[in-house]
Design a protein around this nucleic acid. Structure first.
Length: 210
DNA sequence: CACCAGGAATGTA
DNA sequence: TACATTCATGGT
């Protein structure tokens, strides 16, 4: 019973579908606006709580800047910097967010990016300063509907605790999951979400912005 | 006041 | 390849 699929089925039985916990992230149908919020949120939440990232997202929304195109069109980072300050790392996050938004606009927007090849898009994302493997895969899986399995600290701890593997390296651990799971976007989202929910409880922070 | 939340880049050997 | 250090904020 020490296999990923079996453990996944147990999680599903114990906790239910991930849409119940994170509807904004796990719903199969999402608006472009919703997808853009997820992408923007991923930069903001790096090494910070969702609570702080949500304050920054709320500031962007109130400033009518919760949009990839609008951020990419900014002439200066000054306003962006003050708006997202609650998310911390004010000397790097504004530039990272701007660069990511600019890339997406140059690629033709989120809807065009969704048509692209997953490997190409992933390597394009990783070439951006401030986008590492976890951010790239989260964007691919939750915003672009691509089968990218997300590895995070919860996944590493869970894998070790359940006796699957002690591997900590991002891509090696990801490879383990890819080899032991059928390629299925819904399954990837459910498992990633349920691993987190099972460890910290459903009441804990996640992206809130409407 | 100490501590928690928790990615990526950079530098070292 | 593997590990240490750096970057900032708001809540408890």
């Amino acid at each position: 019973m020490k296999n990923v699929v079996g453990l996944y089925q147990s999680l599903l039985q114990d906790f239910g579908d991930s849409v119940f916990y994170w509807p904004q992230w796990c719903a199969s149908e999402k608006s472009i606006e919703e997808r853009e919020k997820i992408i923007i949120g991923m930069i903001l939440v790096q090494k910070t709580s969702w609570h702080n990232a949500n304050i920054a997202l709320k500031n962007l929304r109130e400033a009518k800047l919760l949009s990839i195109k609008d951020i990419a069109n900014l002439k200066s980072l000054e306003e962006l910097t003050s708006l997202i300050r609650p998310a911390g790392f004010f000397q790097s996050k504004p530039q990272r967010l701007f660069d990511l938004c600019s890339f997406i606009v140059s690629a033709g927007g989120v809807d065009q990016l969704m048509q692209c090849d997953i490997a190409d898009t992933r390597s394009n994302l990783l070439n951006l300063k401030g986008v590492g493997p976890e951010t790239a895969d989260t964007i691919l899986l939750y915003a672009l509907d691509k089968p990218a399995f997300v590895i995070d600290e919860y996944t590493r701890r869970w894998s070790a605790k359940e006796g699957l593997t002690d591997e900590k390296d991002y891509h090696k651990l990801q490879q383990y999951f890819l080899e032991n799971l059928p390629e299925d976007i819904i399954l990837y989202r459910n498992l990633h979400t349920l691993i987190i929910v099972s460890q910290r409880g459903k009441d804990r922070s996640v992206m809130e912005v409407v």
